[in-house]
């Protein structure tokens, strides 16, 4: 049985029995003709035997992994930001920002390559660049670089601004459960940690949601497998 969270840039794919989730570029997945048993995400709708809306799979996955009654989970990926807040384990706020988180993840990935920035060692300071979308932010970094600022410094301010924007979008919670590709960016986690307690959940929360739906249909599937649990 194949489970897939087909994002804009990366697909997270797991087949029952596999030890780990595979991260595959979406362009490669989209070019293939593989059928999915359970799918969620931008490019999964047309080729999944069972498709779940992104916000629904995120909600279900978060509920399967978090024991708290009241909590907020933010999925920050390459293209957009998705948010679900729970009160009494019921969703009370759903949001999906495309415009105001436009391509922030993809932009960060691109400038990381372009300016050869190591996010594991990038020092994030007190200063930030206001970030509302990737395009505007990119322009500011380029302006700063052209004005003689070190690329690392400009990128660090961008990362800090991104974290502030994510914190605001999430409604400024005391604790934020973070899902998606940004959980593997240490500089971003440090920046976000300035504002709230961050619980990184890795990139598999929507897959856990799909698993939970599959287990509703076939209870013999059992509990969430280790491969899908946050490391």
């Amino acid at each position: 049985m194949i489970f897939c969270d087909a994002g804009s840039s990366w697909c997270k794919v797991w087949e029952t029995g596999e030890e780990a989730v595979r991260i595959v570029p979406t362009r490669e997945m989209a070019a293939g003709s593989s059928r999915l048993d359970w799918g969620t995400g931008h490019t999964a709708r047309g080729r999944s035997a069972h498709f779940e809306n992104d916000l629904i799979s995120l909600s279900r996955g978060a509920l399967a992994l978090v024991r708290d009654d009241d909590f907020t989970v933010l999925d920050l990926g390459s293209r957009d930001a998705k948010l679900v807040s729970f009160a009494g384990r019921r969703p009370v706020r759903l949001d999906w920002s495309v415009g105001c988180a436009a391509a922030t993840g993809a932009t960060l990935e691109m400038i990381g390559h372009f300016y050869r920035v190591d996010f594991a060692s990038l020092a994030v300071g007190d200063e930030w660049t206001p970030v509302t979308c990737g395009t505007y932010a990119l322009e500011r970094i380029m302006d700063a670089f052209a004005a003689g600022e070190r690329a690392e410094q400009a990128v660090a301010r961008f990362v800090h601004g991104l974290a502030r924007n994510a914190f605001d979008f999430a409604g400024r919670p005391a604790t934020l459960h973070l899902s998606g590709g940004f959980t593997s960016n240490p500089a971003f986690l440090t920046a976000l940690g300035r504002y709230c307690r961050v619980v990184p959940m890795g990139r598999t929360v929507p897959l856990v949601g799909l698993w939970a739906f599959a287990a509703d249909e076939d209870p013999e599937l059992g509990p969430v497998p280790a491969a899908l649990r946050p490391g």
Binding site: N53, L55, S59, R90, P91, L94
Partner: peptide, 17 residues
């Protein structure tokens, strides 16, 4: 579209995803 679909679905299931 996904936001509206998810909201309506949750509304119709009493909040259970």
């Amino acid at each position: 579209r996904a936001k509206v679909e998810a909201f309506i679905r949750l509304a119709c299931t009493g909040g259970t995803p």
